[in-house]
């Protein structure tokens, strides 16, 4: 089951905005939601920063993520959904990590959020490309079927006049 699930999840492009809601927390005037599916290897994190009072998205904040001794600036440029701030972090080992999100905005000031996340082990790298590998056996099967149908057609007796 684990293998099947990992196969299903693995074929996703590495662009941000992916993953489930990891946590949502209010800090000062900000409501911060972090998305991601952390696993060993490169993981995309996306952050939605909202005004806590009216929930309007804040697009002019500076957002950074610190985890596993790495600090990365999250930007709109790295996100597909331009309401989010996204960045990529590389994990080398599975386990529990403390993820810190820093948000700063000119008018509202800054905020700091600390939350524990669990990084799951990554499946074998080639499993992530299973659709590419599946192409060969599928094509061979279709070819075999094609040949079988052709041979059946040639064996068929001619229709009576």
């Amino acid at each position: 089951m684990k293998l099947v699930l990992s196969l299903l999840f693995a074929a996703v492009l590495a662009f941000a905005d992916g993953g489930a809601v990891l946590f949502r927390q209010q800090s000062g005037p900000f409501l911060v939601t972090v998305f991601g599916s952390p696993q060993v290897g490169s993981t995309d994190f996306s952050v939605l920063v909202q005004n806590a009072s009216d929930r309007s998205p804040m697009l002019d904040a500076e957002v950074s993520i610190a985890v596993a001794h790495q600090l990365a600036a999250a930007t709109h440029a790295q996100a597909t959904n331009k309401l989010l701030y996204a960045t990529s972090i590389r994990f080398f080992r599975p386990g529990e990590y403390s993820l810190q999100v820093r948000v700063a905005q000119m008018e509202k000031g800054g905020a700091y959020i600390d939350h524990d996340i669990v990084v799951s082990p990554t499946p074998a790298p080639w499993l992530a490309y299973w659709p590419c590998f599946a192409l060969v056996p599928v094509a061979i099967l279709l070819f075999a079927l094609n040949q079988w149908l052709k041979s059946k057609r040639t064996q068929r007796p001619p229709a009576p006049p």
Partner: peptide, 16 residues
């Protein structure tokens, strides 16, 4: 406004 602009710029453009 900026939010609408950001929303309209959010195209995925996946080659697959």
């Amino acid at each position: 406004n900026a939010v609408a602009n950001a929303a309209l710029a959010s195209w995925a453009l996946d080659f697959r």
